[in-house]
Design a protein around this nucleic acid. Structure first.
Length: 489
RNA sequence: CGGGGUAUAGCACAGUCCGGUUAGUGUACCUGGUUUGGGACCAGGGGGUCGUAGGUUCGAAUCCUACUACCCCGACCA
């Protein structure tokens, strides 16, 4: 087993690349840096999307849709924002093609756009240009909009899900009357993301503030959730930004207060992307393939019939269908794979590669004994159970798997979270991989110097961090809390 | 965008250095049969613009040039 996949310890990044492709999640496309998300991968994304969408709605948000194209002039209105994204924007300059001289097709030079359009790398500008028209008075606030969309960032180096030129995401954009309210919204949404990561993805995360250097272009504060992958590198999995009045000022969005004065609107924005798919793969999977948390698995249970000849198949099929119906009635997604084109052993390996949490094998022997063999993907354990009460057994097992993979990931993170009191200790831990808590003097200069020396960056200043006096590991200057370092994706 | 590597059947590769029958192997695929509790076996069969475009040559997968894509390392980034 496992011979179809490179082992993690041999070459972690090759293991990841192979797994994404072999598990049928995604593949590279004809377009540089852009991926095709295949049906099985997209089914997982849909589950993520649905769960998140519900959480957004439950916290009072509504969905809307804004244009893919943004007039170039909008972009230049917020200085930090332009600077952050300018280097990776795709630009539309023409609106027509024509037949070329030698049978090909070419851009019609007469069809040049008056104003060039930027393919959105994020939508703050077009949205704040729109909000200007929506907001006159405090009665129009708050606005709590989200959109599910694709965005384009022209990346130099891409990897399936982790960094692609085009990706899918959601971006929430909210407008508030007060600073406090906007900050509370920013905080609320990072909590929603953390909740989703831990309870659906079974992936423990650390919530915290980004340093000035790592902050979103145009934000006053960026909150992040950081997860630790199995190779000891951190992955930023979601961000929520407090934008202050930056965009309101750039797009002149003011409102009349109760008292009759005029104020700029306060803003937040927050997003998670298909990068979560990469996080999901790297958080749990093993050398046999994907390990999916039951709450996000497109297929939670697969039933594999084992039989000799058509007569046995008919009997096993009947029993299998009965189990499938029972489980489906309990809201469990089940696939009964009675294809006779593949042998059971082949199917076992296939569903392990694809991360199906639970497998039921059902054969003639089981029919005689009123039993079934149940294998769980996370531990690869197999046990024989009585056929009765299959729904309860499976329900408990799915819960168990969901909890177990979370605990496993949490244990991994605990074992790979270190404390360093000087540069030597710091380097040693960073080299091994994992999170390192260390004192830092608070300057960008020191942060960059540490990055240059060790490749580690400050992932975040954890929320609710314990305050303790100490000395910066690099400069020895006073510090009153430790910050979280790691090498990152 | 800089450095390195790779590109030959759906996939994984050999052949390329040193040009010369009809481009080969494994796997996957198709047909028939035997099988079926951890990626079955036997027999037969189909599948190739050798990444793309030029060039050198009597002759190019092989030599030369350009381009494109992917992988690894850096810089940038969610």
């Amino acid at each position: 087993m496992g011979k179809f996949l490179t082992k993690r310890e041999e070459d972690y990044s090759q293991w990841y690349n192979e797994l994404v492709i072999k598990a049928d999640l995604a593949e590279n496309s004809a377009v540089r840096g852009c991926m095709v998300i295949k049906p099985y991968g997209y089914a997982i994304w849909e589950k993520m999307r649905d769960a998140l969408d519900k959480m957004f709605k439950d916290t009072g948000h509504v969905n809307a849709y804004f244009p893919l194209f943004i007039p170039k002039s909008f972009f230049s209105k917020e200085a930090d924002h332009v600077e952050g994204f300018a280097k990776e924007c795709a630009v539309v300059t023409h609106y027509r093609l024509k037949n070329g001289e030698n049978g090909g097709i070419e851009v019609d030079p007469d069809a040049k756009l008056e104003e060039e359009l930027i393919v959105r790398p994020t939508s703050e500008t077009i949205i704040w240009n729109t909000y200007k028209n929506w907001i006159q008075s405090y009665r129009d606030l708050p606005i709590l909009c989200n959109q599910w969309a694709n965005v384009v960032r022209w990346e130099m180096r891409t990897r399936l899900f982790l960094r692609t030129a085009e990706f899918l995401w959601q971006e929430g954009h909210t407008a508030h009357a007060t600073k406090e309210e906007a900050i509370a919204e920013t905080r609320q949404m990072i909590n929603v993301y953390a909740d989703f990561a831990e309870n659906f993805m079974a992936m423990p995360v650390i919530k915290g503030h980004k340093t000035a250097n790592e902050r979103f272009a145009g934000a006053l504060d960026t909150l992040t959730i950081e997860a630790l992958m199995q190779d000891g590198k951190a992955l930023q999995s979601g961000t929520s930004h407090f934008l202050g009045q930056n965009f309101a000022k750039a797009f002149d969005v003011k409102f009349a207060t109760k008292e009759g004065t005029e104020e700029y609107v306060w803003a937040s924005s927050w997003g998670v992307s298909t990068r979560l798919m990469g996080a999901l793969v790297m958080a749990h999977s093993d050398d046999n393939g994907l390990v999916l948390p039951p709450k996000l698995a497109p297929i939670q249970v697969v039933i594999v019939p084992i039989y000799k000849g058509d007569e046995q198949l008919a009997l096993v099929r009947e029993a299998g269908n009965a189990i499938m119906d029972e489980l489906k009635a309990a809201g469990i997604s089940v696939k009964f794979d009675d294809r006779d084109t593949h042998k059971p052993g082949w199917k076992f390996a296939e569903y392990e590669l694809k991360g199906v949490p639970v497998r039921i094998a059902l054969g003639a022997r089981d029919l005689e004994n009123g039993t079934m063999e149940i294998a769980r993907r996370d531990t690869l354990e197999k046990n024989t159970y009585k056929r009765e009460g299959v729904t309860e057994i499976i329900k408990n097992l799915l819960n168990d798997i969901q909890n177990n993979i979370f605990q496993k990931a949490l244990k991994y993170r605990k074992e790979h979270t270190f404390t360093a009191n000087n540069m030597d200790e710091f380097k040693e831990h960073i080299e091994k991989g994992g999170f390192v808590n260390a004192h830092w003097d608070g300057t960008t200069e020191t942060e960059l110097k540490i990055k240059e020396m060790t490749k580690a960056t400050i992932r975040c200043i954890p929320i609710g961090n314990t305050q303790e006096n100490g000395k910066c590991i690099l400069t020895g200057k006073p510090s009153k809390e430790r910050v979280l370092f790691a090498k990152a994706y």
